[in-house]
């Protein structure tokens, strides 16, 4: 890919840097981020602790104490890591695409779980059934896992059912499926949350004792399908 530089590197404090590919939600950019993330996991930069892929950026955490031990006194650890990152990107093959998984997620849209659906139907002047259909008929990409362990940021939601997050966060149950702007997400845990809740999945988004703790990975394709409440109750056991 890039002939000219299509990214910027800026410090995230004194122990991390962010490679920013532009403030946008795009599958192509997200592919680039994930490619780079997997490549760096295989061949970490010197002093690197870990990397965090997001929508359109990759952040690299490093140990400045270790890095400083490898470089001349007048050079900063950030300056060194920035150069190493640029070198890595220059020598990196952009052709690989991460494997695509299609993940089917059951969602129960019953009013008991869809705590914000009624309000949403009012604001949007739409049938609840129509909102639900528009939600599950679409296919979504998991752009990133963040905020909480296993929380997937998915898009892009149909404009017709997009709604800004609530101004006052409310307590949400694990498995709650929410809408914020043109994103949809699933809360793995009981916590205060501001997304508009329209259903609940019986699947465990995050299980600390599972081999793969997070059910979803960045880059996955997600398809929701509706289930009845009795099915939900059977599956949750």
């Amino acid at each position: 890919m890039p002939q000219q530089k299509i990214y910027e590197i800026f410090p995230l404090g004194d122990a991390a840097l962010t490679i920013d590919f532009g403030n946008s939600i795009s599958e192509k950019i997200n592919d680039t981020v994930l490619n780079l993330f997997y490549a760096m996991r295989q061949k970490p930069l010197p002093g690197m602790i870990e990397a965090i892929p997001a929508y359109s950026s990759l952040s690299i955490f490093y140990n400045p104490f270790i890095v400083k031990g490898k470089i001349p006194v007048n050079e900063t650890a950030f300056g060194f890591m920035k150069k190493e990152t640029e070198k890595f990107i220059a020598g990196f093959s952009w052709n690989e695409t991460p494997p695509i998984r299609i993940m089917k997620i059951p969602v129960c849209y019953d009013e008991e779980f869809a705590t914000d659906l009624e309000r949403m139907a009012g604001i949007k002047k739409m049938d609840k059934a129509e909102i639900i259909r528009l939600h599950y008929e679409n296919q979504y990409r998991v752009y990133m896992i963040g905020f909480l362990p296993g929380f997937p940021y998915m898009g892009i939601l149909d404009e017709k059912i997009s709604l800004p997050r609530k101004s006052q966060p409310q307590q949400v149950a694990p498995g709650s499926v929410g809408i914020a702007g043109r994103q949809t997400g699933i809360y793995p845990f009981n916590c205060p949350g501001g997304w508009n809740i329209i259903g609940r999945t019986p699947m465990k988004l995050f299980d600390p004792l599972r081999q793969e703790q997070s059910l979803l990975h960045a880059g996955d394709t997600v398809e929701f399908y509706p289930i009845e409440k009795n099915e939900f109750l059977n599956l949750i056991k």
Binding site: L12, A16, Y55, S57, S59, G146, F147, Y153
Partner: peptide
């Protein structure tokens, strides 16, 4: 007032 897409934060941000 641009909307920011989420990215990594850290201790001390």
């Amino acid at each position: 007032s641009e909307d920011l897409v989420s990215s990594a934060v850290s201790f001390g941000t």
